[in-house]
Design a protein around this nucleic acid. Structure first.
Length: 361
DNA sequence: TCTGGGGTCCTAGGACCC
DNA sequence: TCTGGGGTCCTAGGACCC
């Protein structure tokens, strides 16, 4: 009798219609209905769909679609506002259940995670993942199994909903070879179009392309990186290291285009103070300010400036953001304003500085 | 149809320096 | 006259992802 081979696998867990599922869970009357979650839940407002239930998707409503368009397609659907707190809480429950399996868990947002697993039976383990999460949260997920993160991530979609799918070097070209390049994680519409101009349409064609040719079109780093995607290669490890943000931002799309620049300035100051609060909560001072403007109809620019010194001072931050407004075109109307603050690196807690170093004021 | 909000990383071009 | 060859830093924009 042969000993089963324990190998290192990557599993990708993706919750099925997560946001809509959480809403249905706390309001069982929504079961089986067309549920569309997005914006403030008012389909006459500017905003887009975050998630639609499968019943709504059947009519072509999906993520990223303007709420007004969704309402035109589905006038009788139930429109709900995005409730971030509820999803964060549900997400925490999911991640906790995953960690209870005793594997490396890399969180990828509210409803996704990679697992680093050593097992001789990844399919059985994937079933256990689904059942464990469902028992803990009453939410269903799909699981992709791969020999790296890229393949596991792509596999998940083939299993949806509530399924399991395996994608490895064994079946990579059988499954992916004839698909268009934008089926790859990391290659979007723009890059796919640019590749098509080079005569590269499918994953197999991309895999067979010389790195030097890709580098000439996409740059020394991005070019070869795109090539590895085509071959299904991904060397990045599954890591449980907690995510450390480099910046935070807040932005507002106005319900009506704004041409009063006094109001624009008011909003910029308000946004700056909100981001400042986010930084304070992490105890990381601001070092740079970026102002984002979207002119009517939909033209976006950014402008940025360093702060003289790292700071939490509300007036300094708000003045710095307001000063950047001088650089904008005040003859145009605006549909969005945003403020981003880059932060100092996080303070690493050591015995030395927890023993009584005064952080100062 | 009319396009959210919150993030990251890479590239290109100009400034500046030796 | 006609103007090297790097290296680094900064900024704006592009692309992508959830």
């Amino acid at each position: 009798m042969t000993t089963p081979v324990r190998r290192r696998w990557v599993l990708h867990v993706d919750m099925d219609q997560f946001i809509a599922a959480v809403e249905v869970l706390r309001n069982p009357e929504l079961v089986g209905k067309q549920v569309v979650v997005g914006g403030r839940g008012d389909p006459t407002e500017r905003g887009v769909v975050s998630t639609a239930s499968y019943e709504a998707r059947a009519f072509g409503v999906g993520s990223g679609m303007p709420l007004r368009v969704a309402a035109k397609k589905l006038p009788d659907a139930i429109f709900l506002p995005v409730d971030g707190e509820a999803y964060t809480e549900a997400s925490n429950g999911v991640m906790e259940a995953l960690r209870s399996l005793g594997v490396v868990v890399e969180v990828m947002g509210w409803d996704e995670a990679f697992l680093g697993v050593e097992t001789d039976d990844p399919v059985a383990f994937a079933r256990r993942v689904h059942d464990t999460v469902f028992e803990a949260t009453s939410l269903h997920c799909s699981v992709g199994i791969g020999d790296n993160k890229l393949r596991a991530k792509i596999a998940t979609d083939f299993g949806k909903p509530q399924g399991i799918y395996t994608l490895t070097s064994e079946n990579w070209f059988d499954v992916m070879g004839d698909r268009t390049t934008d089926a790859l994680w990391g290659i979007g519409k723009k890059t796919a179009k640019k590749l098509a101009l080079l005569g590269i349409t499918t994953v197999a064609e991309l895999a067979a392309t010389e790195d030097s040719l890709l580098a000439a079109s996409f740059g020394p780093k991005t070019g070869p990186w795109i090539g590895t995607k085509g071959r299904g290669i991904d060397l990045s490890p599954v890591s449980a290291e907690p995510w450390v943000a480099r910046s935070h931002s807040r932005e507002t799309t106005f319900q009506h285009d704004l041409d009063d620049w006094n109001l624009v300035t008011e909003e910029v100051r308000r946004l700056a103070l909100r981001v400042r609060d986010d930084l304070l909560a992490e105890n990381r001072m601001a070092v740079r300010v970026t102002l984002k403007v979207r002119y009517v109809p939909f033209e976006t620019h950014t402008t940025t400036a360093p702060l003289v010194a790292p700071t939490f001072e509300p007036e300094v931050i708000s003045d710095a953001a307001a000063a950047l407004i001088e650089r904008l075109d005040h003859t145009r109307a605006v549909r969005l304003m945003g403020v981003r603050l880059e932060m100092t690196p996080p303070v690493v807690q050591t015995a030395a500085n927890s023993a009584g170093d005064d952080p100062g004021t």
